[in-house]
Design a protein around this nucleic acid. Structure first.
Length: 501
RNA sequence: GUCCCCAUCGUCUAGCGGCCCAGGACGGGGCCCUCUCAAGGCCCAAACAGGGGUUCGAGUCCCCUUGGGGACACCA
């Protein structure tokens, strides 16, 4: 870290849609940098585009950050000394500052109608030129501009980009980026509705809020020189600029799109943080996963939030685009599930059992959790691995009751002898029940997989389950015997076909 | 079309001139363990886009080509 002075970082989403992975990663890095240096992470809502406003998206942003465990120190609903934190509640400041730039000669009022601008743009494109403002209002005298404003004519305020010269901007990860001013435009700073565009609003607020490090997506790189010029025109200190790469779709060809988002859903994944919880992902898993896309960690890459804060270094972020890889999300999720204390895991999987319609008693829940813990990739896998524990009865597929290499009659015989043994044993504690059954396997000249497979299907109703003896212990002697009797009955009803291959 | 950014295994990445015939992780393959499924352990295949420089020495610095990505709104 180049400096350990407390950093003030900000995440500035616009409430125009759903909160996705890319935003979450920016927020994470903002959070890590702030916590690492003992600074603050602020949330600012950039809601100056009223046309694209989507009700509920601010709530989704806040809920997502909360679920991830990277809550802002300041922001809407959190308060703080730099409020308000919604840009529509700060409109006067933008208008005032746009005026300041005009007075300084760094910006000018523009009365061109959207229709005229569109026509100009079309004409330029026809001539294969880069679309840009043609400068019509740039040379208006202050008097004329003032009188047209007084007449009530609609206008915007544009930045007066120098026609000559080069703007050199410095990005922490990429170094100096030089752009010739002639390629830049007289960009609109204040719209005719009196609200600012991003180019003014973000620069002003970052300054007013004492933001020290701006972490944002690389889609801002083309307007980076403009932003630097705006800041310099005001005479403010620049923050440290860090442009993060974008997330590419799994194929690596192109960035995540609507289509790709839909595809992820059909594959059981989502690029929206809010969906992650319902899909059985843990905040730890998601955080670890997104952290490693764009942050180069050489080894020991399994980290929780605290460990990330400990090891974070903003200079170690990588500038190249990263393709999303859901395999890795599954891996990290499983890894973090295994790291969870049993009672914590139990608390987290309980809602999935409840939602599936099971009546969950905490005693049983706590007993089965360690049995399924290392088998879960997502939390909702608990149903597949442990649902039968909460069922009164199970109904195995009769075919699953027939062991490989045995006929139905032979399988029934093995089940009967197992039943005799289990009936006679004092307890189904696994260390008590297992030895005599192993002896039976030996005696019948079979192998463990055959006999235990029959019992597994009979007792759990499935061919895949947690370890058999531990499972039987939880289910209890009474139910085990009951289920075994049912299985024997089912086997006896089976036509005796040749041994299962 | 113009501008900007990026470029190491299929993917995420380590590497900031000699420690690299390139390390880790996911995924893939094999073996071990094993009552199923996992988990775990061991092993294997897999990359410096190409071409020029600079240097005693280049994955590491510079240039070009190629490829990829992004941006060209009174959206952010």
């Amino acid at each position: 870290m180049s400096d350990l002075k407390p950093a003030r970082t900000r995440m500035a989403p616009s409430p125009t849609g759903r909160f996705h992975l890319g935003s979450a990663r920016t927020a994470l890095f903002d959070y890590l940098l702030a916590k690492k240096t003992g600074g603050q992470f602020v949330l600012r809502i950039e809601d100056t585009d009223r046309k694209r406003f989507v009700p509920g998206s601010e709530e989704e942003i806040i809920a997502s950050l909360k679920w991830l465990g990277i809550e802002p120190d300041e922001g809407p609903g959190y308060g703080g000394p730099y409020g308000p934190y919604r840009q529509t509640e700060r409109r006067q400041a933008y208008a005032d500052h746009a005026r300041i730039l005009v007075d300084k000669g760094a910006a000018f009022p523009c009365f061109c109608t959207p229709e005229r601008l569109a026509a100009v743009r079309q004409e330029q494109q026809k001539r294969k030129e880069t679309p840009r403002y043609d400068g019509t209002c740039r040379s208006l005298s202050p008097q004329e501009a003032a009188s047209r404003i007084a007449d009530g004519e609609k206008y915007v305020i544009r930045f007066k980009m120098p026609y000559e010269g080069v703007t050199v901007a410095r990005d922490l990860l990429r170094g100096e980026i030089a752009t010739e001013n002639r390629h830049l435009d007289d960009t609109v700073l204040l719209k005719s509705d009196g609200l600012p565009t991003y180019h003014l609003a973000a620069m002003l607020d970052d300054h007013l809020m004492d933001i020290t490090h701006v972490l944002r997506g690389s889609e801002w790189l083309p307007t980076f020189p403009l932003h630097v010029q705006v800041v310099r025109a005001f005479g403010w200190d620049e923050p440290v600029w860090v442009h993060l790469s974008v997330f590419l779709k799994p194929s690596g060809k192109g960035k995540m799109s609507k289509r790709e988002a839909a595809q992820a859903m059909t594959d059981g994944y989502s690029i929206f943080v809010k969906d992650m919880e319902g899909l059985g992902y843990t905040p730890e898993g998601v955080l670890n996963w997104i952290a490693l896309m764009g942050w180069g960690v050489a080894e020991d890459d399994v980290m929780n939030l605290d460990e990330m804060v400990e090891r974070f270094d903003v200079e170690k972020l990588t500038p190249s685009p990263a393709a999303i890889n859901f395999n890795k999300l599954d891996h990290f999720n499983g890894t973090h599930i295994r790291r969870l204390p049993v009672d914590e895991l139990a608390r987290r999987i309980k809602p999935f059992f409840v939602d599936a319609g099971y009546e969950v008693d905490n005693d049983t829940l706590l007993k089965i959790t360690p049995l399924i813990q290392e088998r879960l990739v997502t939390l909702d896998d608990c149903i597949a691995f442990g649902g039968f524990f909460f069922q009164e009865t199970v109904t195995p597929d009769p075919q699953d009751l027939v062991a490989k290499g045995l006929t139905a009659a032979q399988s029934a015989e093995a089940a009967r002898r197992s039943l005799d043994i289990l009936s006679g044993v004092d307890s189904l504690a696994h260390d008590i029940a297992e030895p005599p059954l192993r002896a039976l396997v030996e005696e019948m000249g079979l192998n463990a997989g055959q006999v235990f497979g029959i019992l597994r299907a009979a007792v759990t109703g499935q061919r895949v389950s947690p370890p058999l003896f531990e499972s039987m212990e939880v289910i209890g002697k009474e139910k085990v015997i009951e289920r075994l009797e049912g299985a024997i009955g089912a086997l006896e009803n089976l036509d005796d076909t040749p041994p299962k291959g």
